[in-house]
Design a protein around this nucleic acid. Structure first.
Lengths: 360, 360
DNA sequence: ATTAGCACTCGAAAGGAAAGAGTGCCAACA
DNA sequence: TGTTGGCACTCTTTCCTTTCGAGTGCTAAT
């Protein structure tokens, strides 16, 4: 266990370091933190915090800098769960309200918003599982052309224009429309078997292979709907961070991010919605992120739609503020994407912060 | 007029400078360019090229660097119109073939591809004008719900799920579907007048305001289809350029770009498809681009669909290679987006390079 | 246990010298 | 008249040394 005073000092070091990006010395802490003792005392404590592994010195005669372990301690126990002022919260919600259209647009809008709010690169991801088709329609345009319209279990609608090299009878299209609407609705992608397709083809008396075209579209739509959509915004904001003044370093990370780099540890699924996850420096799996930090909020929009929204930055990050903002964004997404209409606002979900507490 | 030898020397300076990013001296040129004269002669010529304004010296005892005017001369007259090898051309076409889905996806895929090929940030933009509705369908789902499906003049299909707070008779929906299909097809957005909406409402005997909902969607679709779509990729590639080693400078430009900064001079419209436009340094209108260059290829995909694809980089840019690659991309887009099916490959459009020849 | 004091360390900043690339110009030359 | 070798000159880049100062660690006093 670590003494109360050490905690206060550690917190003070981190706060100051986050603010200034410079190693912080004993004097600065003595004058700032409200603990009534001199810089010499602080020096002793600091030395111990170094040997405990929470802080380190760039070199013998410099101030102290938090280690990842120090940040971890800070995030887990020390940091005051920041609550944004009411205005800030309302501002975020207002800005989110303006931006609600199609899911795919929403996801990129929200990542852009997250980046704007935090001034770090932001990244949003949505996954849907167990999507089924709710309704199937085929609109006959002309003998070679028809439009397939599919309504999915999450009430999104997809369509496709199909042009065939051969002429098709309108009656056949009608029969197929009916058959698909009864046979292909309510089932998941795996249930679309060749067997099912074959029997549909026979039932429709389809000799021209139209059935398989439509079935292919059904599979495509289901697959696509279940393919995670991701969006990254504001990579350039990395450049305003002093730790990325080295263009090579910045380039490496930005390249990784815009290449769709995976942020989440693969084993950790996005279950617990409403939680905030913090990954500090070496806790990240990706080599490119080993000296950066990631803060992620997950949300659950119902209909098997889940997602995360997160930001990436240097380990010297204002975890508290970022977590608070992401939390509001995630809660907003859960509400809005979920029920279609927004429940009463103003309630944030509570800020449960969780991280990789494992060995380090 | 400028002597033949000066042209050769200027071209040599630019080639070398583009390659190395270092001021180039008389000796390097003497040994490289195949004109049989000594470095002293070259020095004299260089001095004249400086006073003519094509070159400049960073400081008295340094080599020469091209001015924007020098680049302009190079692009207009000196540069050999580079033809890519057959393999390269085929490679690009192949990679383009893999990426053809929805228009919105295509546009971002192609900008990504352009960025990969040139190693500069790339930007693509598509505009459509005079879009009309070709076909109008309304699918009745239940008493409160229906799906509007609209097929546009460029054969894209849009849909929307509408939920009403009131119950609607299926007959009314059918009547509206027919009315819209006759009254709202083949007309542009401006032709959708309140008058037309009103008369449709009366003709359908609609007392529940459904007509206006559908009309609103029609307007929305037409507006959206005519809103230019833009996409930027590979901003981070800027960081590999020596002239953007200064993070602040890089940040400024990247911020401008990802903020959807306008690249084209507003007065110049995207008419002449197949042309390549080069804007060098101060020829750009945007303050943020005054010391960068932009190369743009335009394409015409028929159906009033036009667009551009371009890259942004330092004025020290391999204009020739970039122009050649963009040209192939633009030609590919014209072919593919246009007719729906690709005409014979292997023909590039010719490389007409045009730029701001005005005062400078 | 805390604190004042002080010698010590080490990086960052400032100054200066040397190196080197490249020019400009002059005088010789074809 | 255009070209060339030669050479002094200029200016940046690099490297070394010195100085400066922030911050420490330790000791002795409280």
């Amino acid at each position: 266990m670590i003494s109360e005073r050490k905690k206060k000092i550690l917190a003070a070091v981190i706060d100051e370091y986050v603010r200034t990006a410079e190693p912080v010395g004993s004097k600065a802490i003595a004058s700032k933190a409200g603990l009534g003792c001199s810089s010499a005392t602080i020096r002793n404590e600091l030395a111990e915090l170094v040997s405990l592994g929470y802080l380190e010195q760039p070199h013998t005669s410099a101030g102290r800098v938090p280690t990842p372990m120090g940040y971890r301690m800070y995030v887990n126990e020390l940091m005051e769960k920041q609550r944004l002022s009411l205005e800030e919260t309302e501002d975020i919600n207002r800005r989110m309200n303006q931006k609600l259209r199609e899911l795919d647009d929403t996801i990129s809008d929200v990542s852009r918003l997250a980046s704007q709010l935090t001034d770090y690169p932001a990244l949003a991801l949505t996954t849907r599982t167990a999507v089924t088709i709710k309704r199937f329609d085929i609109i006959y345009v002309d003998a070679n052309t028809f439009i397939i319209v599919v309504m999915l279990s999450d009430n999104t609608v997809k369509n496709k224009l199909v042009k065939l090299p051969v002429s098709v009878d309108q009656k056949l299209v009608q029969r197929l429309s009916a058959l698909f609407n009864s046979g292909f609705t309510g089932i998941t992608e795996e249930a679309v078997t060749p067997l099912l397709i074959n029997s549909t083809e026979r039932a429709a008396d389809d000799t021209m292979g139209v059935t398989s075209v439509i079935a292919a579209f059904a599979i495509e739509v289901l697959t696509e709907a279940q393919t995670p959509t991701a969006s990254i915004s504001g990579e350039n904001r990395l450049l305003s961070q002093p730790e990325f003044r080295d263009p090579d370093k910045a380039h490496r990370l930005m390249g990784y991010l815009s290449g769709g780099g995976y942020i989440l540890p693969p084993n950790e699924s996005m279950d617990a919605a409403g939680e905030i996850k913090v990954l500090i420096g070496p806790e990240n799996v990706a080599e490119e992120l080993k000296d950066s930090s990631v803060v992620i909020a997950t949300y659950d929009a119902g209909d098997n739609t889940k997602g995360m929204i997160g930001v990436v930055g240097p380990t010297r990050m204002d975890y508290s503020a970022v977590a608070a903002k992401l939390s509001i964004l995630a809660a907003g997404l859960s509400r809005r994407l979920g029920s279609g209409e927004a429940p009463p606002e103003g309630m944030h979900n509570k800020l449960i912060i969780k991280g990789d507490t494992g060995n380090e």
